[in-house]
Design a protein around this nucleic acid. Structure first.
Lengths: 119, 119
DNA sequence: ACAATAACCGATAAAAGATTCGGTATGGGG
DNA sequence: CCCCATACCGAATCTTTTATCGGTTATTGT
């Protein structure tokens, strides 16, 4: 996991939430983890992200107590991750954010593409 | 503004939303901008962030159409930024995130501090 | 015995983002 | 006239995050 050298503590709830939710794929993983729970399945689901990143972000989510690991110690290692009750408190927020993003996808993608044009 | 070299387009609303909201101080600026609107005031309000960052993040918010600039072209340059109607659609989400962060501040800070201990 | 899959970890390269420092231009007060 | 404030921008530098690659351990199917 990454440890920061410079630390801040604005008593800003958003800042704190972003320490937990920030990360390129974390939200997608959380979204995925509601249906599928095994790392290899998540990796197949989110094809854009490498398995390494998924591992790392899962480790962070585990660290913050958002997900928990239920490793049945049997054959081809059936590790499963699932949301903790703490993690579940995030769901309404995540769906709100997701909804907003989808609702305004056109505009955002449009702007985003403008950034790439000139290269 | 930063232009990304590697691009993705997961049709994940959260990912899109994070392109707009991501950034160390953007949420704090959005929070501030409801009361105060001039760059120098924001800078004095968010003392941890340098004026340069605030400028850059304001530029991004402007770019995505979240805020708009109302520069009265008069004396000590009374530039004012305010939320657009698009930006206002973010408010309920931002307050939800903020609320969550404050509600779980103890746990999160606790975990965060653990990361810094060993150096 | 051998290839295949799952779940990891460590090291390092590369990209993205933040900070710092200096600079411009404008106008006001002493 | 000089200094201060505001609002910016550019570039160098550093931190943080992500990507890539290889390695480990264990178990299953052939």
């Amino acid at each position: 996991m990454y440890t920061r050298k410079i630390q801040e503590d604005p008593d800003c709830g958003i800042y704190l939430a972003m320490r937990v939710l920030g990360g390129k794929w974390k939200c997608c993983i959380l979204d995925a983890i509601r249906g599928i729970s095994r790392p290899s399945e998540i990796a197949r689901y989110i094809t854009e992200a490498s398995t390494r990143v998924i591992e790392m972000q899962l480790a962070e989510l585990l660290f913050y107590g958002i997900v928990e690991k239920c490793a049945e110690d049997v054959y081809p290692k059936k590790t499963e991750y699932k949301l903790t009750s703490f993690g579940e408190t995030l769901l309404p927020i995540l769906s709100k954010i997701d909804q907003w993003g989808i609702e305004h996808a056109e505009v955002i993608k449009d702007r985003m593409s403008e950034l790439q044009e000139d290269e």
